[in-house]
């Protein structure tokens, strides 16, 4: 547990000083918002409102891919990943520290992205905020759990930028299914369907367990 906290602290301090990851993810997300404007010409406001959750999640997923890859690529400088693997004890805690740091940074980007979408597309997200935050938070746990595990593998192959999306996207279907459904309900002012939350919690739990246990093998030489 302390190991996880140490890694969380290390990642946040490093990011605070470099600020490259959050900035890159943010610029990318804003660009996505602009791309959607051109991709959906002449949409009426009520159409856009129905589309916003899906568009938002599309931006979220691709921004997360960017951040996850960078998060693990940083550990390759100076072979720092080997330094983590040398530490005694269960390596699952290393995973948990990295995944939590990723979750915090990605969530931050997601919050700002939602704000920008709201402004660009004239969607009032304020009433939906608590529900949306819950769904996005839970969905991002799943993304970060599977993503941290898979990024640790992807960055150590020769094709890191290509491989992570190929590995991660097919695994995110259950997360997206629950998250988009839940977000849509939140944006349309309804209550979040219980099924969405249930699904997200189950998927989060499964991915966390698989990644926690699998990380030991991933860090081996």
């Amino acid at each position: 547990m302390n190991v996880a906290l140490a890694i969380l602290w290390k990642d946040l301090v490093s990011e605070w000083r470099a600020r490259d990851r959050v900035v890159a993810m943010l610029i990318f997300s804003i660009l996505m918002a602009v791309v959607f404007h051109f991709a959906l010409p002449g949409s009426r406001p009520e159409e856009l409102q129905a589309l916003t959750p899906g568009l938002l999640w599309t931006a979220y997923i691709f921004a997360a891919l960017l951040g996850l890859n960078r998060s693990l690529a940083l550990e390759l400088d100076n072979d720092a990943l080997a330094g983590l693997a040398l530490a005694p004890g269960n390596r699952g805690w290393i995973f948990l520290g990295k995944a939590t740091a990723n979750w915090i940074l990605i969530s931050l980007v997601q919050a700002i992205t939602a704000l920008i979408f709201a402004i660009f597309y004239g969607v009032d997200l304020v009433p939906a905020l608590p529900g949306l935050a819950l769904v996005v938070g839970l969905g991002t746990v799943g993304i970060c759990a599977a993503g941290t595990l898979l990024a640790t593998m992807a960055v150590r192959t020769g094709f890191r930028e290509v491989l992570l999306p190929v590995l991660l996207l097919p695994a995110l279907f259950p997360v997206l299914a629950g998250a988009v459904e839940g977000s849509l309900a939140a944006v349309q002012g309804g209550s979040i369907p219980f099924e969405s939350l249930q699904l997200l919690i189950v998927v989060d739990g499964v991915y966390l367990v698989v990644a926690f246990l699998g990380f030991d093998y991933v860090l081996d030489e």
Partner: peptide
């Protein structure tokens, strides 16, 4: 373990690097 790579984090200070490693070793 001392390798030809330093295993250090460039954004952290020297002291922070050691404190972090110390926490890894509990």
């Amino acid at each position: 373990y001392l390798g030809h790579s330093t295993l250090l984090y460039p954004e952290l200070s020297a002291r922070e690097n050691l404190i972090f490693t110390g926490r890894l070793y509990r």
